[in-house]
Amino acid sequence: MSDFWVFGYGSLMWNPGFDHLRAEQALLRGAHRALCVYSWVHRGTQERPGLVFGLDNGGACRGLAYQVSEDIWPQTLEYLRAREQTTMVYKEHWHHVELGSGEKVKALVYMVDHGHPQYAGALPPEKQLEIVEGAVGKSGKNPEYVINTAAHLEEMGIADTALAWLAGQLKGTGNP
């Protein structure tokens, strides 16, 4: 039996939405987590975009790798594509990730497409705050997404000072 792996670095860490055999902390080299995607659906609209995480080139990213059994892989992939590829801002890639146990596995990752109109690039923290504060999409308020991701990274012992600052600012504005 051959199992598949999915790497989560944003909301997939705290809301995977699919069955899995196990989840383990993992390190992806060659890409980093960044609030670099304008959200036109899940955490904003085209008229009032929010910001969500993407995997951008360079650096490294700690997240969660989910092992999915072969027998439910087709449904899982269909679910992930419906969730992550709503506007095709991400490209599916297979990358090696190193699990917390030291094991190396090949995992499906969603990398941001630099040529897509929703690619925001590297925005200054103050601009991120301005965009996130009032944005709402079909999956909820944008501040909630950022705060939840920051909280889960902290619980996992993953330091992200820029995200911690942003979450702190959002909490200070009365946002959930």
Rank of each mutant, 00 (worst) to 15 (best):
Y66A: 01
I131C: 01
H95D: 14
F53Y: 08
S39D: 00
V97G: 07
Q75A: 07
R33Y: 06
W14T: 07
W165G: 04
T76G: 00
W14H: 04
E130Y: 13
P143W: 08
M13D: 07
V146K: 00
H20E: 03
H114M: 09
G168S: 06
V105S: 10
Q67G: 06
K141P: 14
K141Q: 15
T149Q: 04
L27C: 11
L153T: 11
F4L: 10
Q75N: 08
G50T: 11
R29Y: 10
H20C: 02
I72E: 01
T149H: 06
G59V: 12
P125H: 13
G157V: 13
L166I: 11
S139L: 08
S69P: 07
A167P: 09
M88Y: 11
G134Y: 14
D160H: 06
G174D: 03
L21E: 14
Q118P: 04
W5V: 06
H93M: 15
Y38M: 00
Q67F: 11
N175D: 08
F4N: 08
Q67V: 09
V6Y: 07
E154W: 13
A162F: 12
M156L: 15
P74G: 03
T149E: 06
H96A: 15
E126N: 06
W14A: 01
V109G: 00
Q118K: 02
A60Y: 14
A120L: 03
C36F: 11
V52N: 01
A23P: 08
D19G: 08
H42G: 00
A167V: 12
R33D: 05
G100F: 14
R29K: 15
V6M: 02
G100M: 15
F18H: 01
R48W: 15
A23G: 13
T87K: 02
